[in-house]
Nucleic acid binder design. Sequence first.
RNA 1: GCGCGGGUGGCGAAAUUGGUAGACGCGCUAGCCUUAGGAGCUAGUGUCGCAAGACAUGGAGGUUCGAGUCCUCUCCCGCGCACCA
Length: 877
Amino acid sequence: MKKITTSANVDAYDHAKIEKKWQKEWDDQKLHIAKEIPGVKKFYGLIEFPYPSGEGLHVGHVRSNTAMDIICRKRRREGYNVLYPIGWDAFGLPTENYAIKTGIHPAIVTKNNTAIFRKQLKDIGFSFDWTREVNTSDPAYYRWTQWIFLQFLKKGLAYKKKMTINWCPKDLIGLANEEVINGKCERCGTLVEKREKEQWMLAITKYAERLLNDLDAVDTSDTSGTKKPLLDWPEHIKDAQKNWIGKSEGAHIDFRIVLEDDKNALVDSQKSDSGASSTSSTFGTYSTFGIKVFTTRADTLFGVTYIVIAPEHQLVQTLMPSLSNRLEVESYISKSKIQSEIERTNDEREKTGINLNGVYAINPANNEKVPVWIADYVLADYGTGAVMAVPAHDTRDWDFAKKYGLPIKQVIVGDPSTPSVRSENDSHQKTATVTDNTNNTKAYCEDGTLINSGKFDGKDSESARKEITKHIGGELVTKFKLRDWIFSRQRYWGEPIPVVKCEKCAISNPEGGGWVPVPESDLPVKLPEVKKYQPTETGESPLAAVTKWVNTKCPVCNGPAKRETDTMPNWAGSSWYYLRYTDSENKTAFADKKNLEYWTPVDWYNGGMEHTTLHLLYSRFWHKFLYDLGLVPTIEPYTKRTSHGLILAEGGVKMSKSKGNVVNPDVIVKSVGADTLRVYEMFMGPFDQAISWDTSNIAGSRRFLERVWKLKNLLHPDSSNNSKDVERSIQKTIKKVSDDIENMRFNTAISALMIAVNEMEKIGKISKSHYETLLQLLAPFAPHITEELWSSLGNEKSIHQSPWPAFDSKMAVADTVKIIIQINGKMRGSFMAAAGTSKETLQDLAQNNAEVIKWLKDKIIDKVIVIPDRLVSIVVK
RNA sequence: GCGCGGGUGGCGAAAUUGGUAGACGCGCUAGCCUUAGGAGCUAGUGUCGCAAGACAUGGAGGUUCGAGUCCUCUCCCGCGCACCA
């Protein structure tokens, strides 16, 4: 028969063979190894290095890695010297937990897992520079993580502090605030508890202002005169960081505390044996025995009807002896202490509190005497741990006042031009003793005009804030939600914190608490072998059991000392890995200055939204710190940041081992090839949006590549008969694919390539040069098949070293255009016209168009709008 | 509650400055080719309608010759933060 199956088989697209062949070839040619070449423009593309979990590579890794791979491949062909490195964020709990279960050393587990990841990544053909691979759990790497910690210590930015931490009773680990989600452990979902523990802290709050301001900094190195932002980040990522840092401008205002005895007489606090210091007993003068509140609404000061302080506030203990309801107060405090985080943050929960009987505060604005309450809706660790309550203008205070029958006093009215929340005659009531002088059903929280505020009546909120603060001797201050970073973990599989505790030094130098840094020359402090990885109930690291390791000599006094057994959180190693990539083998510094100057900052960093407030903020902090020490040349680490959307399982749920819906990329690579997998993941939908995996759609991507493969059968030796149309369509494709890659609109880039292939198939013959251009555009997406076809066309050098196709705008201009005819806004016809046809001619052609005439019959033309090269819009009556 | 994203065919989605809504792909339908096909090729495929045509981008208004796109109000979904004074 006419069977051509054999010859077809010979010619079939054999992805397995092709992909293996070229991966080896590229390796042999060292095609993707980056070298510092002074004078040649560089591009540093970065992906978040993976945690080598036992589950293997996730299809989500493939999505983000492919995206950056495409960009890097394009940059190389645009003449950039490209660094696209890879490594392992290898410290972490899952590995340690696995070690606990199996007894296998985490280092072994890590080694096995990275080997699997490495093979998986190589099989997909990413153009990583594998010679710069880093591993955060490698002593040669964490030596420098420890070294950076010592610099923090030296500058006083690392300190140990006893504090209440979030404790996960399941993982037996302390958590950073950032790792607690809705009162639960981020990793295992267990309710966290509060524990008192000495913790190493990093003073990230010292950098809060700069971390915030530099988000909107202007690039001063750009001398072109345009004010280019320093960070090319999408606004939503900047917003997320800004919200997290949480700057608010407000004022500290002092309220004097007075105590009232049984006879309702005011007694100065000095007379009580509270131990508080007071310099005056005269009503109306300033007393140091007072309470400082933080407020952003000093304009509402005249509306204060009570003061609330956090149960943990020191003043409560000071006042305790003077309280008549001492037992109740004590019981409230102990109750709120054991309250779990989840209860405290539940928004359904009603506010509770208790009055401190006999304790009053004097409003510095009007000398009014208001009661003092404690309530756990006031946070001890924000602001001053005390607030002035203005129920008329704050929702929380409103709720609380309504519940406990506290007075509500309105002092702000809305702009009269906008609907007011209150009636006219209310504004003339000026009484300090009303229980509720508003007719409102909720707090009015907007800015407005002041009333009931003495000489400030009629002022607007904004100016009143400053004036009132000044008037009563308050202080304008700035607060941040950001807290210092809890840097200790009581676990094994992390970087040991390189300090020792020396009792002798603690006596001679009490400032440092006896903590002595390990000399830099003694780094790294290596993790010792342990028998058991199990963390302890007491909250001590498993390292504490290794007495031989723990007992050491003090580097200062040579006396007996004990090593710190806490380790660093896994955010430590990832806070500076992008710097190590520039010089991964360096043994004398974390990276050579010359290399840092050449490669940094990272030009483009893609990663997940989930790292916006943790990793991204932490690493910016470390980078700025190193910049201050003169160790890195730029104030920001990442010039451009983008984020990818998650890949969900079919049905829109998260992929997880337990649900059994995890897609293994190996299986796809084996059955349809890495190129198909790459094309599919780029085509599946908008890159920055979450999307569900859909196996049935992979066939379309495979089909597309097969059609590209078969196009070679349409090669025509005579390229002279290429019509201008074909040329134009190629140019359009160059433009579209180039632009789309820059904007990470990979789905439409592939769609444009599909359109080009469809057109070529339809025409039935293609010239070599057009085919080559198509392959060149497709090459970043599908590097193997394009390389094979490119080479079969007789090219000796790799397609990935060929220049990126140049867009020729002249060739792309069409000489005839389609003109749309609209009648009363509805499309009624169209016609072809030469590009640049005059308005008059177009109108004429439109009105005489056969399809249009019937619509114009018996109608009067009211108006005609002509958009040249586009449309003619006719309005008829 | 606040912040950030989204709502367009059966499905994933396209749509420069407002200018043919649904490109591209999946799926589906019919036909061709095959011993066969989860292969390939051709044609079709928003909804209603025989058709002419009408109606269609979460909903309601508005601006405009013209709105998925701009304005006002509103509903729903996802993510983040969450008593931050």
